[in-house]
């Protein structure tokens, strides 16, 4: 028996989008490869955090009060926090700002990927870069004798995800409102300021009093405290976790309001 409906048109194959998951994964893959292939981005996201870890653990030129913990156990969580900030904030702000200036955001928004898919791809790309960072920093730290509290590893992931959310949102706020050259300068400057005085590597509590009062409430200080609390003691410190969650929600809402695609 042949087809009972003759002259039925052939199924149209043109004009169909690839499945959403495939589109977003393709975009995430492109974002990840672009960052890891770019020399400056690789330097900021991977090389500097690893060198800082080795230098601070092995070097004796910086006096650090580790509160009884080994130097590597005390410093590794802070350097993971710093790495998260380089990938989700500095690197993402610069990449998005130049993509915005070059019209890449607009072009991809006209493909089946759309604006939502583009954002999802960017966030997944950041997480993929962070996976590379965590594996590398974790491996180097382990060689240096790092033994994180096993009970805290899963809790540390909560901090990692919240921190990624807050700093990616901040990256979008900056990249979606300022000129690309201004973003390039600001993203690097802000990273340096937060790294030194933001309670990331050195806990806010150990900073000079006026700086400490501010750093405790910054997303950088909160992220550092969450990662130290979980990986050193195996517990999620409630106040820093809430502070970080509040920044994630607040910066996310701000990014949604102020981000300009053009």
């Amino acid at each position: 028996m042949t087809d009972p409906t003759p002259a039925a048109p052939a199924p149209p194959t043109a004009g169909l989008a690839a499945p959403p998951v495939r589109r977003v994964l393709a975009q995430a893959g492109l974002e990840t490869r672009t960052i890891l292939r770019n020399g400056e981005q690789l330097l900021v996201t991977v090389v500097i955090p690893v060198l800082a870890l080795v230098g601070l653990v092995r070097g004796t030129f910086v006096e650090i009060d580790t509160a009884g913990a080994s130097r590597v156990d005390f410093l590794t969580p802070g350097l993971l926090a710093l790495a998260v900030m380089t990938a989700s904030f500095t690197s993402q702000a610069i990449a998005t700002a130049f993509d915005r200036r070059n019209g890449v955001l607009r072009l991809m928004a006209t493909t089946p990927l759309g604006r939502g898919g583009l954002l999802a791809g960017k966030v997944l790309g950041v997480l993929a870069v962070e996976l590379v960072q965590v594996v590398l920093i974790g491996a180097v730290a382990a060689l240096l004798g790092w033994r994180p509290d096993p009970a805290g590893v899963a809790l540390a992931l909560v901090g990692l995800v919240l921190g990624t959310g807050a700093f990616t949102a901040l990256a979008l706020v900056v990249a979606g409102t300022l000129r690309a050259e201004a973003v390039l300068a600001l993203a690097n400057l802000l990273l340096l300021v937060l790294a030194l005085g933001g309670g990331v590597v050195v806990p806010a509590a150990d900073l000079p009093a006026p700086v400490a009062a501010v750093a405790t409430w910054l997303p950088s200080g909160a992220l550092g405290d969450v990662l130290r609390g979980t990986l050193l003691d195996g517990t999620l410190p409630l106040v820093p976790a809430l502070v970080l969650a509040a920044w994630t929600v607040g910066l996310g809402a701000l990014a949604a309001r102020v981000f300009r695609w053009h």
Binding site: A17, T34, N102, L107, P112, G114
Partner: peptide, 19 residues
């Protein structure tokens, strides 16, 4: 969402990722 798969766009400033 329904339209984008059926429309092709070439922007004046290219819109191609530089890296």
């Amino acid at each position: 969402a329904a339209l984008r798969p059926r429309v092709g766009v070439m922007l004046q400033d290219g819109g191609l990722p530089s890296g």
